[in-house]
Amino acid sequence: EGEAHRVLFGFVPETKEELQVMPGNIVFVLKKGNDNWATVMFNGQKGLVPCNYLEPVELR
């Protein structure tokens, strides 16, 4: 579910809505907001990550 994206930079959450991710993680974007935040799914957890920390990736 969602579009696959690769994480470019590590992100440490500052609020409980945000999700910690590391460079190279593959996350699935469920929704992109107008505020430059994306709702993503990673390892069964859902949370917010900055859009500019993500790049689309083709999964084969």
Rank of each mutant, 00 (worst) to 15 (best):
P56V: 03
G2D: 01
V29R: 02
G47K: 03
W37Q: 13
F28S: 14
P56C: 03
Q45G: 08
V40P: 01
N36S: 07
V12T: 15
C51G: 06
N25K: 05
V49Q: 00
D35T: 07
P50C: 01
H5T: 03
V27R: 03
E1Y: 05
V7Q: 03
N43W: 03
V7I: 07
F9W: 10
L30T: 11
L8T: 10
Q20C: 10
A38M: 04
K32I: 02
L8N: 05
V29W: 01
E55V: 09
G47A: 03
V57F: 08
L54Q: 03
E1Q: 08
R60Y: 10
G47S: 04
T39E: 13
G24E: 02
A4N: 04
Y53K: 08
L8A: 07
P13K: 02
N36I: 03
R6A: 04
K16D: 13
W37L: 12
V40T: 02
V12P: 04
V21D: 00
L19G: 03
F28I: 09
V7S: 01
F28M: 14
E58R: 13
R6I: 09
G47I: 10
P56F: 00
E55S: 06
E14N: 15
T39H: 13
L30S: 06
R60Q: 15
N43P: 02
L19N: 02
D35L: 04
G24H: 04
L59W: 13
F42N: 03
K46T: 13
L59D: 13
K16R: 11
P13A: 09
N52P: 08
G44Q: 08
F11H: 15
L54F: 01
E58F: 10
Y53F: 12
P56D: 01
K32F: 04
L8I: 11
V57A: 09
G10L: 08
G10Y: 09
V49I: 08
D35Q: 06
G10C: 08
D35E: 07
L59V: 13
G33S: 15
G47M: 06
P56W: 01
R6H: 06
V7E: 02
V21T: 01
P56M: 04
P23C: 04
E17S: 10
K16C: 09
N34H: 15
N43T: 04
E55H: 03
L54C: 00
N25D: 15
L54M: 06
V40Q: 04
F11T: 15
K46M: 11
G24F: 00
N25V: 05
G10P: 14
T15I: 07
F11S: 08
F9I: 13
G47F: 05
M41N: 11
T15M: 12
T39D: 08
G24Y: 00
E3L: 10
P13W: 04
V40C: 14
F42H: 14
E14G: 11
L48G: 07
G44C: 08
G33M: 13
P23M: 02
F28R: 15
N52Y: 04
F9R: 14
V49N: 06
L48Q: 07
K16W: 07
W37S: 09
V40L: 01
N25R: 04
G2S: 06
N34K: 14
P13F: 01
V7R: 01
N36E: 09
F9Y: 14
L19A: 06
E1F: 09
L54I: 06
E3G: 11
F11P: 00
P50T: 02
I26H: 04
E55N: 02
A38Q: 01
A38R: 02
E55T: 07
K31R: 11
V7M: 04
F42W: 08
W37V: 10
V57R: 03
T39F: 07
P13I: 06
V7K: 02
N36K: 12
E14S: 15
K16P: 14
I26E: 07
M22H: 15
G33A: 13
D35F: 05
G24C: 01
D35V: 02
I26K: 07
C51S: 08
V57D: 02
A38Y: 07
P23W: 02
Y53I: 14
L48I: 15
N34A: 14
E58A: 14
G47R: 03
V21W: 01
E14Q: 14
P50I: 03
